[in-house]
Protein backbone atom coordinates (compact mmCIF):
# COMPACT_ATOMS: atom_id res chain seq x y z
CA UNK A 1 0.00 0.00 0.00
CA UNK A 2 1.39 3.30 -1.01
CA UNK A 3 -0.04 6.79 -0.75
CA UNK A 4 1.33 9.18 -3.30
CA UNK A 5 0.46 12.87 -3.63
CA UNK A 6 1.79 14.75 -6.63
CA UNK A 7 1.48 18.46 -7.01
CA UNK A 8 -1.81 18.54 -5.06
CA UNK A 9 -3.64 21.81 -4.51
CA UNK A 10 -6.81 21.95 -2.42
CA UNK A 11 -9.37 24.67 -1.85
CA UNK A 12 -12.05 24.81 0.84
CA UNK A 13 -15.15 26.93 0.19
CA UNK A 14 -13.39 28.43 -2.82
CA UNK A 15 -10.36 29.59 -0.85
CA UNK A 16 -7.08 27.94 -1.90
CA UNK A 17 -5.58 26.32 1.20
CA UNK A 18 -3.01 23.79 0.04
CA UNK A 19 -0.57 24.54 -2.78
CA UNK A 20 1.30 21.96 -4.88
CA UNK A 21 1.89 19.40 -2.18
CA UNK A 22 4.06 16.34 -2.84
CA UNK A 23 3.91 13.59 -0.25
CA UNK A 24 4.64 9.89 -0.05
CA UNK A 25 3.76 7.17 2.45
CA UNK A 26 5.27 3.78 1.70
CA UNK A 27 4.03 0.40 2.87
CA UNK A 28 4.16 0.08 6.66
CA UNK A 29 5.58 3.54 7.12
CA UNK A 30 4.52 5.95 9.87
CA UNK A 31 4.63 9.43 8.40
CA UNK A 32 3.77 12.58 10.29
CA UNK A 33 2.55 15.92 9.06
CA UNK A 34 3.31 18.87 11.32
CA UNK A 35 2.85 22.60 11.00
CA UNK A 36 1.26 25.59 12.69
CA UNK A 37 -2.51 25.90 13.12
CA UNK A 38 -4.27 26.76 9.88
CA UNK A 39 -1.38 25.73 7.63
CA UNK A 40 -3.59 23.26 5.74
CA UNK A 41 -2.72 19.90 7.30
CA UNK A 42 -6.30 18.82 7.93
CA UNK A 43 -7.39 20.17 4.56
CA UNK A 44 -4.77 18.05 2.84
CA UNK A 45 -5.93 15.00 4.81
CA UNK A 46 -9.54 15.67 3.87
CA UNK A 47 -8.59 15.67 0.22
CA UNK A 48 -7.05 12.22 0.69
CA UNK A 49 -10.21 10.76 2.22
CA UNK A 50 -12.36 12.46 -0.40
CA UNK A 51 -14.16 14.98 1.77
CA UNK A 52 -12.62 17.60 -0.53
CA UNK A 53 -11.69 17.32 -4.17
CA UNK A 54 -8.28 18.71 -5.09
CA UNK A 55 -8.25 21.60 -7.54
CA UNK A 56 -5.08 20.28 -9.14
CA UNK A 57 -2.68 17.35 -8.86
CA UNK A 58 -3.12 13.66 -8.30
CA UNK A 59 -3.70 11.56 -5.17
CA UNK A 60 -3.17 7.85 -5.63
CA UNK A 61 -3.51 4.94 -3.24
CA UNK A 62 -1.90 1.80 -4.60
CA UNK A 63 -1.60 3.43 -7.98
CA UNK A 64 -5.28 4.40 -8.36
CA UNK A 65 -6.59 7.95 -8.32
CA UNK A 66 -8.71 7.99 -5.13
CA UNK A 67 -11.08 10.54 -6.57
CA UNK A 68 -11.91 8.25 -9.45
CA UNK A 69 -12.42 5.13 -7.39
CA UNK A 70 -15.97 4.19 -6.41
CA UNK A 71 -16.70 5.47 -2.88
CA UNK A 72 -16.79 1.98 -1.37
CA UNK A 73 -13.52 0.85 -2.90
CA UNK A 74 -11.79 3.99 -1.72
CA UNK A 75 -13.07 3.29 1.81
CA UNK A 76 -11.79 -0.27 1.62
CA UNK A 77 -8.28 1.15 1.14
CA UNK A 78 -8.23 4.13 3.49
CA UNK A 79 -9.57 4.51 7.03
CA UNK A 80 -9.74 7.77 8.96
CA UNK A 81 -9.70 8.79 12.58
CA UNK A 82 -10.80 12.40 12.35
CA UNK A 83 -11.74 14.94 14.96
CA UNK A 84 -15.44 14.91 14.18
CA UNK A 85 -17.24 12.59 16.57
CA UNK A 86 -20.79 11.29 16.44
CA UNK A 87 -22.21 13.20 19.36
CA UNK A 88 -25.96 13.34 19.50
CA UNK A 89 -27.40 9.95 18.79
CA UNK A 90 -27.05 7.24 21.37
CA UNK A 91 -24.96 4.78 19.40
CA UNK A 92 -23.30 2.09 21.47
CA UNK A 93 -19.58 1.43 21.21
CA UNK A 94 -20.13 -1.77 19.25
CA UNK A 95 -22.49 0.01 16.85
CA UNK A 96 -19.84 2.66 16.20
CA UNK A 97 -17.17 0.05 15.58
CA UNK A 98 -19.47 -1.92 13.30
CA UNK A 99 -19.80 1.17 11.11
CA UNK A 100 -16.28 0.31 9.99
CA UNK A 101 -17.82 -2.53 8.01
CA UNK A 102 -20.00 -0.16 5.96
CA UNK A 103 -17.84 -0.40 2.81
CA UNK A 104 -18.17 -4.18 2.75
CA UNK A 105 -20.98 -6.59 2.08
CA UNK A 106 -22.70 -7.31 5.40
CA UNK A 107 -21.86 -10.61 7.05
CA UNK A 108 -23.27 -10.58 10.56
CA UNK A 109 -21.10 -13.25 12.14
CA UNK A 110 -17.78 -12.31 10.54
CA UNK A 111 -18.43 -8.61 11.17
CA UNK A 112 -19.16 -9.22 14.81
CA UNK A 113 -15.94 -11.15 15.24
CA UNK A 114 -13.87 -8.51 13.44
CA UNK A 115 -15.35 -5.76 15.56
CA UNK A 116 -14.80 -7.67 18.77
CA UNK A 117 -11.17 -8.17 17.79
CA UNK A 118 -10.76 -4.48 16.94
CA UNK A 119 -12.20 -3.46 20.31
CA UNK A 120 -9.95 -5.94 22.05
CA UNK A 121 -6.98 -4.45 20.25
CA UNK A 122 -7.67 -0.99 21.67
CA UNK A 123 -8.32 -2.46 25.11
CA UNK A 124 -12.04 -1.74 25.25
CA UNK A 125 -13.66 -5.15 24.85
CA UNK A 126 -15.53 -4.65 28.11
CA UNK A 127 -17.15 -1.46 26.85
CA UNK A 128 -18.98 -2.85 23.78
CA UNK A 129 -22.46 -2.13 25.13
CA UNK A 130 -21.75 1.31 26.51
CA UNK A 131 -23.17 4.48 24.98
CA UNK A 132 -20.43 6.24 23.00
CA UNK A 133 -21.41 9.71 24.19
CA UNK A 134 -20.80 8.74 27.81
CA UNK A 135 -17.17 7.71 27.26
CA UNK A 136 -14.15 9.80 28.22
CA UNK A 137 -12.17 11.59 25.50
CA UNK A 138 -9.48 8.93 25.49
CA UNK A 139 -11.96 6.09 25.27
CA UNK A 140 -13.79 7.81 22.40
CA UNK A 141 -10.56 8.17 20.48
CA UNK A 142 -9.77 4.50 20.99
CA UNK A 143 -13.25 3.49 19.85
CA UNK A 144 -12.80 5.51 16.66
CA UNK A 145 -9.47 3.82 16.15
CA UNK A 146 -11.20 0.45 16.60
CA UNK A 147 -13.70 1.48 13.92
CA UNK A 148 -10.81 2.27 11.58
CA UNK A 149 -9.28 -1.15 12.37
CA UNK A 150 -12.58 -2.88 11.63
CA UNK A 151 -12.45 -1.18 8.24
CA UNK A 152 -9.44 -3.42 7.48
CA UNK A 153 -7.54 -0.95 5.36
CA UNK A 154 -3.83 -0.83 4.75
CA UNK A 155 -3.68 2.95 4.96
CA UNK A 156 -4.66 4.87 8.06
CA UNK A 157 -5.14 8.64 8.28
CA UNK A 158 -5.09 10.24 11.71
CA UNK A 159 -6.06 13.85 12.26
CA UNK A 160 -4.66 14.92 15.61
CA UNK A 161 -5.44 11.60 17.24
CA UNK A 162 -3.98 12.69 20.55
CA UNK A 163 -5.68 16.03 21.09
CA UNK A 164 -7.81 16.02 24.26
CA UNK A 165 -5.78 13.12 25.63
CA UNK A 166 -3.55 13.04 28.67
CA UNK A 167 0.07 12.10 28.22
CA UNK A 168 -0.41 8.42 29.00
CA UNK A 169 -3.25 7.99 26.55
CA UNK A 170 -1.36 9.94 23.89
CA UNK A 171 1.51 7.51 24.15
CA UNK A 172 -0.81 4.51 24.20
CA UNK A 173 -2.57 5.55 21.01
CA UNK A 174 0.65 6.27 19.17
CA UNK A 175 2.28 3.03 20.29
CA UNK A 176 -0.82 1.11 19.31
CA UNK A 177 -0.83 2.58 15.82
CA UNK A 178 2.91 2.01 15.41
CA UNK A 179 2.53 -1.62 16.41
CA UNK A 180 -0.17 -2.14 13.79
CA UNK A 181 2.41 -1.71 11.07
CA UNK A 182 -0.17 -0.15 8.75
CA UNK A 183 0.93 2.66 6.47
CA UNK A 184 -0.06 5.73 8.46
CA UNK A 185 -0.23 9.43 7.81
CA UNK A 186 -0.81 11.34 11.03
CA UNK A 187 -1.27 15.02 11.75
CA UNK A 188 0.41 15.70 15.08
CA UNK A 189 0.97 18.86 17.07
CA UNK A 190 3.61 17.71 19.50
CA UNK A 191 6.97 17.95 17.74
CA UNK A 192 8.70 15.76 20.31
CA UNK A 193 6.17 13.01 19.74
CA UNK A 194 6.38 13.45 16.00
CA UNK A 195 10.13 13.01 16.25
CA UNK A 196 9.83 9.96 18.48
CA UNK A 197 7.25 8.07 16.48
CA UNK A 198 7.69 8.88 12.80
CA UNK A 199 9.77 7.18 10.18
CA UNK A 200 9.54 10.33 8.17
CA UNK A 201 8.03 13.71 8.73
CA UNK A 202 6.68 16.53 6.56
CA UNK A 203 6.48 20.14 7.67
CA UNK A 204 3.73 22.36 6.29
CA UNK A 205 3.65 26.11 6.39
CA UNK A 206 1.11 28.44 4.79
CA UNK A 207 -0.32 25.69 2.62
CA UNK A 208 2.99 24.39 1.32
CA UNK A 209 5.11 21.45 2.29
CA UNK A 210 8.40 23.11 3.13
CA UNK A 211 10.45 20.12 4.25
CA UNK A 212 10.32 16.35 4.41
CA UNK A 213 12.51 13.50 5.56
CA UNK A 214 13.72 11.76 8.73
CA UNK A 215 12.63 13.78 11.80
CA UNK A 216 16.12 14.54 13.19
CA UNK A 217 17.22 15.94 9.85
CA UNK A 218 14.09 17.95 9.15
CA UNK A 219 13.29 19.53 12.51
CA UNK A 220 16.27 21.85 12.77
CA UNK A 221 16.13 24.89 15.06
CA UNK A 222 16.32 27.05 11.93
CA UNK A 223 13.31 25.46 10.28
CA UNK A 224 11.27 25.52 13.49
CA UNK A 225 11.88 29.20 14.06
CA UNK A 226 11.08 29.90 10.44
CA UNK A 227 7.81 27.90 10.43
CA UNK A 228 6.48 28.37 13.96
CA UNK A 229 8.16 31.64 14.92
CA UNK A 230 9.57 30.13 18.09
CA UNK A 231 13.10 29.37 19.17
CA UNK A 232 13.95 25.71 19.66
CA UNK A 233 16.24 25.11 22.59
CA UNK A 234 17.79 21.85 23.64
CA UNK A 235 17.39 21.37 27.36
CA UNK A 236 17.46 18.66 29.90
CA UNK A 237 13.83 17.89 30.46
CA UNK A 238 11.44 15.19 31.52
CA UNK A 239 10.83 12.62 28.85
CA UNK A 240 7.67 10.56 29.10
CA UNK A 241 7.68 6.91 28.34
CA UNK A 242 4.86 4.48 28.45
CA UNK A 243 5.03 1.87 31.21
CA UNK A 244 4.98 -1.62 29.77
CA UNK A 245 1.72 -3.47 30.33
CA UNK A 246 2.11 -6.12 32.99
CA UNK A 247 -0.03 -9.06 32.18
Amino acid sequence: MKLDLRNVSVAADGTPIVHEADLLVADGEFVTLVGPNGCGKSTLLRAIYRALRPTAGLITVDGDDVHRLPARQAAQRTAVVAQETPADLDFTVSEIVRMGRTPYRADARADEELCARALDRVGLSGAAGRIFATLSGGEKQRVLLARALAQQTRLLLLDEPTSHLDIRHQLEILHLVRELGIATLAVLHDLNQATAFSDRLYVMSAGRIVAGGPPEQVLTPDLISQVYGVRAVHRTQLVFERLKEEQ
Partner: peptide, 13 residues
Protein backbone atom coordinates in the same frame (compact mmCIF):
# COMPACT_ATOMS: atom_id res chain seq x y z
CA UNK B 1 -26.14 10.05 11.41
CA UNK B 2 -22.60 9.82 12.77
CA UNK B 3 -21.50 12.72 10.58
CA UNK B 4 -20.93 13.67 6.97
CA UNK B 5 -17.16 13.24 6.95
CA UNK B 6 -17.47 9.95 8.78
CA UNK B 7 -19.92 8.74 6.16
CA UNK B 8 -17.58 9.79 3.35
CA UNK B 9 -14.64 8.02 4.95
CA UNK B 10 -16.79 4.90 5.30
CA UNK B 11 -17.47 4.81 1.58
CA UNK B 12 -20.94 6.35 1.46
CA UNK B 13 -21.58 8.44 -1.62
Amino acid sequence: AAGEETAISLGVN
